[in-house]
Amino acid sequence: MNIRLAAESLHSCSGCEISLLNIGEALIPLLNRLQLVHLPLLMDHKYSDPAGSETEISIPKAEIGLVSGGVANTHQLQVLEAMRKSCTTLVALGTCGTHGGIPAMINEWPMADALQTVFSTVTTEPVDVPNQDTPPMLDRVYSLDEKTDVDIFLPGCPPDPTIIARVLEDFLDGLTPEPVTKSVCDTCPTRRTGKSERKLLRFTANARFDSNESTASMQCLLEQGFLCMGPVTAGGCGHQGEPACIRARVPCRGCYGPVRHQDNQMLGMLNGLVSQGIDFKTIIDRKSMLRFSGAHGRLRPLKEKKRAS
């Protein structure tokens, strides 16, 4: 029997699905071993009969369910619950699903304030926030595991195609994928000495490197004084070889989320920096260190008192 696959994307950008497609030719034999039963980006299965009175979201039974994106409104929550009900194994695909991702940055503000801001930009006609036939927003953006049980976490923004392919292959072969245990630094070829600059620079000038040499000859960007989230970020980008951002000679910003699911990227990184003797108060925007992992209560609206100061 074929293994059935259902997929949904919730509060996300579709990048994860594009990454899935980026598996390329290898995707085709993989798809041949899988039976797609629900995948809105590629196929036309609907939640319910268009004219039916049924408002329940129905998704066909599947052995494996991929869900990308976090949960930000009641509709997404319903879809997630439907996926959970229909899928034996639920995979959180991408950092939005595992840790909230970029959209969870909104968690730093009360949701109502944020909506107000969006609907009062310079070009927007002054109106109330839409509230008819639009699913109400939740109080904040949640990761999937905050709202339901998740069986496999596959972080990444987006997850590397080779990782997605391997997880699917493992699943088809009846294997449990091994979780990542190391950070981006594991496969980062840059030179590290352990001695770093005692300050952090903004990335307003390029790193120092010899453009004719490989990145292996470049000094670690963190040691060069640039905030690189590599040490607190789960590895795996860049096809598990040279980290993708390092290939572009820019520092990591943490898109795979923390190395261990429950770790706190901001705390881990700031502690690392402070331990090196760097004054954390010189960091202009520390919350940005949680830009990919703002769910799980990590980012929350500032207290009134703090915001005033």
Binding site: M266, L267, V274, S275, F280, K287, K306
Partner: peptide
């Protein structure tokens, strides 16, 4: 001294985390 520097950080961050 490392602990002191970290404590300053903890002091600052606790409110971030509620």
């Amino acid at each position: 001294e490392k602990a002191m520097a970290r404590a300053e950080l903890i002091d600052e961050l606790l409110e971030d985390f509620g």
